[in-house]
Design a protein around this nucleic acid. Structure first.
Length: 269
DNA sequence: AGGGCAACCCGGACGC
DNA sequence: TGCGTCCGGGTTGCCC
């Protein structure tokens, strides 16, 4: 569920808090969430420091001093919290990294995971990801070139991680709305001005969502008032039955290539 | 090659 | 404030 803006938000919050602090304890409550034998995982991590946090698509990579990497994917319903045991939310924590004064809690890792990898293994994991949509290197020309090679419906293409990385069900709805394009459109039939709208919508929606703190409902630390702000900026996603903020028609929800999709049937063409 | 679907998993929503 | 059932969601992989 967390998508690019939510993971970027976690990165921004956490890199102010966990960088260069030794990990004093590691607690694994759910062995399936990690990729090594729990005692080995704990042993390898204990005493290590996180040197940098990198986000790629919906992943966070915690780069360790010893050049190994903790790779996190939250999948469905995964969340993070940084603070003390007392202030932490009353949810099951599958993995806890303790930094002494505060700890990083990995919550709701059901399908999600935290894997300790080498740099090479990390590269393999990321080999099939498309470009980062907010990278300054990613231009409208790149976008157009990639789009030319794709077929299928706009909805399916936007959530395809090998096309552009980091967009999921929620933001694909918002991007299509911002571009005033129907999620059912075949991408091969898009006119060049429509591709332009789509490209700027993509950047604008994701950028604004990051600025608003993402949509996740759980504060990341005590006193956190920013997280979740993007929920209020949703124009169509999961708003079926409400009036379209652009034209006033009723927003609908339909399954498009097996994805629940919200859109305005009147002003998205 | 694109679309459909099952598997992974379990918190939360819903029905009673 | 109970108990069972079902669903959702990203990703992978397998089918047609």
């Amino acid at each position: 569920m967390p998508e690019l803006p939510e993971m970027e938000h976690y990165k921004l919050v956490l890199e102010k808090r966990v960088i260069n602090k030794p990990i004093s304890e590691v607690l694994i409550n759910r062995p399936k969430s990690v990729n090594l034998d729990t005692s080995l995982f704990e042993k390898k991590l204990k005493g290590q420091e996180i040197e940098a946090i990198e986000r790629r698509a919906k992943f966070l990579a915690f780069h360790l001093k010893n050049k190994e990497v903790l790779l996190l994917h939250l999948m469905l319903g995964g969340k993070l919290y940084y603070g003390t045991e007392e202030t932490s939310p009353d949810h099951e924590k599958q993995v806890i990294l303790d930094f002494g004064d505060n700890a990083l809690f990995f919550i709701g890792l059901r399908l999600g995971y935290l894997h300790l990898l080498t740099q090479n293994e990390l590269e393999k994991e990321w080999a099939n990801l498309g470009p980062e949509p907010l990278s300054p290197n990613f231009t409208e020309t790149d976008f157009l070139d990639r789009l030319k090679q794709k077929r299928g419906k706009l909805k399916a293409v936007l959530v395809d991680q090998s096309f552009v990385a980091g967009i999921g069900n929620r933001y694909s709805d918002e991007i299509n709305f911002a571009a005033a394009l129907s999620p059912k459109r075949e991408v091969s039939g898009l006119a060049s001005n429509e591709v332009s709208s789509l490209f700027s919508a993509l950047r604008q929606v994701l950028t604004h969502a990051i600025e608003a703190g993402g949509y996740l409902d759980l504060p990341v630390f005590e006193g956190d008032v920013l997280t979740g702000g993007a929920e209020r900026t949703m124009k169509v996603h999961r708003r079926a039955g409400h009036p379209c903020p652009r034209c006033g028609a009723t927003i609908i929800e339909e399954k498009i290539t097996s994805k629940k999709t919200s859109f305005c049937p009147n002003c998205q063409h």
